[in-house]
Design a protein around this nucleic acid. Structure first.
Lengths: 231, 231
DNA sequence: TCACAATCAAGAGCAGTGCTCTCATTTCAT
DNA sequence: ATGAAATGAGAGCACTGCTCTTGATTGTGA
């Protein structure tokens, strides 16, 4: 399938990668707003129009970077999950959260690209939806481990949320109780609320020891989804 | 102080407001990335260089819009708080949260300007920090109502978070127990995690009944900060 | 009242951007 | 070997933020 047919195909792959690399460098240095196709081409010793043979537009380049960023932060989450395979669910949960945060803090501009204001259009391209779900899937999987077998005490669902909860659970995790599925999705978004506030500077002059603050909040999020401190 | 000295000063105020209005219109229509000084000037029947008499740069115009957006969402929160003055703390809390969300959903691009990726530089200008704190202050005030007098059961702080919690509480709410102050700040950021995920499209194909979902999550956040369902 | 200074609009212009088009060259499959 | 497809280079268009100069309008102190 992905066998390299000839020198030309090989070159195309390499140049595409080089373009993405240089773009990522500029992204990390100056942010998405100042990422310039011409500057990327200039740095690579080619003329700007040549770059359009590889990416049909600036937004397509950005989309490629978005996909890569989703994959990178998803891989970080998966790595933390697999490295804590035998441990208690709550510890695994916090380990995953801390890994996600660590990636975000280390790559603020790439993080802003995927969890900040949507820049290209309003609807995310099709290619991004699978990579975008990786962190969420890890969280679901981590929580699932604690809920196989017996049920855990979760607050009852409000009447009006019943149908939505059932639909949502059937969609993302049919084997889990609806109340848990809802809580998981909420915890998922709240996790990124914590991270975004730190990365985007809203904790400036407010939270100093961000590491400890986040660890405690993430742990509490884990308890919210039914992971017990001991057991 | 703000007395209008003459016709010229009056005109300056009016033109400045007109520029901001037109800029806000373009922001709402196309987003911050496509906000163009030249287009604003064109729409106002003036030449682009004239606009620089009122805003020294594009970033300064954006900063003015940022301040206005913080003020608007802060006012929405304060309105909800004052309109529910006599009610139970948990109901007030959810009312405030829903008002904040409603403003965000109604003004997605302005919301993205203040809670999305920071666009101008990395450090927010001085003028923004006071308006930026309004929503947070309302949340603190709402929670304070339930904690005057007796204490409410809050999970104990982890050992490592003790000093940070004390410092943080002394900073933002010296009369509240440190554990509550920490939880409040976490809930604050998690609230915007919920809203950002909705506004930025991360709930696409996942959460359908966003209204009910948010109401339940916000209520739960209120319980996290110690507001009791009954009482 | 009048002259001077501050303020302001207009226009030209600069450097930069994303993107398109044409044209020559190179590579590949037949 | 030949025709088709892929690639690179260059010119050019419309747009951007921003600066500078010029001339007109407005406010103010002697």
């Amino acid at each position: 399938m992905t066998t390299v047919r000839g020198a030309r195909a090989r070159a195309r792959i390499e140049i595409t990668a080089a373009i993405k690399d240089e773009a990522r460098t500029q992204l990390a240095a100056e942010g998405a707003a100042k990422l310039s196709l011409r500057a990327v081409a200039r740095e690579l010793g080619m003329v700007s129009s040549a770059l359009y043979r590889y990416f049909p537009s600036r937004d397509d380049l950005l989309t490629a970077l978005i996909v890569d960023a989703y994959d990178a932060i998803g891989a970080a989450a998966e790595k933390a999950a697999s490295e804590t395979a035998g441990q208690r669910p709550l510890d695994r949960w916090t380990a995953v959260c801390r890994a996600v945060r660590a990636w975000a803090v280390a790559h603020p501009h790439e993080y802003a690209l995927i969890y900040g204001s949507p820049v290209p259009g309003y609807s995310a391209p099709q290619d991004t939806i699978v990579p975008a779900s990786r962190v969420g899937l890890v969280l679901i999987e981590t929580a699932r481990g604690a809920h196989t077998g017996e049920g855990v005490a979760l607050p009852p669902l409000p009447e009006g949320l019943r149908p939505e909860a059932a639909r949502l659970a059937a969609d993302i995790a049919p084997d889990l109780p609806p109340a848990l599925a809802v809580t998981l999705v909420a915890a998922w978004s709240q996790l990124f609320g914590l991270i975004s506030f730190e990365v985007f500077g809203h904790f400036h002059n407010i939270v100093e020891d961000r590491e400890a603050f986040f660890a405690a909040a993430a742990r509490r999020l884990g308890q919210d989804v039914g992971l017990l401190p001991r057991g």
